[in-house]
Each structure stands twice: as structure tokens, then as C-alpha cells.
Amino acid sequence: MKNEPLAERTAPRRCDVAFTVDGRRVIAAAGETVAGAMLAAGERTFARRYGERRAPLCNMGTCFECAVTVDDAPLTRTCLTTVREGMDVRTDV
């Protein structure tokens, strides 16, 4: 194994589902959460509220920091939402 920082290491992922984040195509494993798929795709800012960038904090649905608009449903918590083929995610909450 290479001598790379732990945070830089990645594991192979099956990518069965495609959806969009702000018009950009993202692929994910079936059963994965939207938050997990977005993080794996390199997304670090999920929303901007109160003039600050937001991203997942608790990953269990209590903090709403990862809330985005999914298929026109605002304030959808990405850590609790499973990816679906063709879903449209907007981070401009």
C-alpha cells in the first residue's frame, strides 16, 4: 500500500446509480446515501445558509447541515436520503 495520508485513500466503489448535483452528473452505489455519494464525488459544500458554507456534520439526521433540495423538496437531509436514478439535487437552499 502506498504511503499516502489516510484521508487521501479511497476504496473501489460500485457505481450503479446516476443523479445530478447542480446539473453535474454524479454516480453512486445503489443503497448509498446522497451525502455519502456527494462526499465521494468531491463535493464539500452542500448549501449556503446565513452566508456560510454547509456540509454534513452529524450524518444521522439531527443537525440539518446537509439539507439540500432534492427533486423540488426543500430541506431534504442528504444523510437520510438514499440515491435514486435520475434524482435532481440542488445545493442552493
Rank of each mutant, 00 (worst) to 15 (best):
E32H: 08
R90I: 09
C63A: 07
A28R: 01
D16E: 08
A73M: 02
D92T: 15
V26G: 00
D88K: 10
V68H: 01
A47I: 12
E8H: 01
G42P: 10
A11P: 00
V93M: 15
M87A: 02
M87C: 04
R90S: 11
E85Y: 06
M1E: 11
M38P: 05
G42H: 07
I27S: 05
V34E: 12
C79I: 05
G51S: 02
F46R: 06
F64E: 07
G61M: 10
M87K: 06
T45M: 13
V17N: 13
L6M: 08
A35P: 09
T91Y: 03
T91P: 06
A30V: 03
D72W: 05
R90A: 09
A30P: 01
E4Y: 12
A30R: 08
D92V: 11
G51I: 11
V26W: 00
T81C: 06
K2S: 12
E65A: 15
G31F: 05
A55G: 05
G31L: 02
M38T: 03
L75I: 03
A40T: 13
A47H: 11
K2I: 12
T33Y: 04
E32A: 15
A29E: 04
E65V: 14
V34C: 10
V68E: 03
L80H: 08
V26F: 05
D71L: 04
T10F: 06
G42I: 11
D72Q: 14
D72A: 09
R77N: 01
A7L: 05
D22F: 14
V89E: 09
A41D: 13
V68T: 02
A47N: 15
L75T: 08
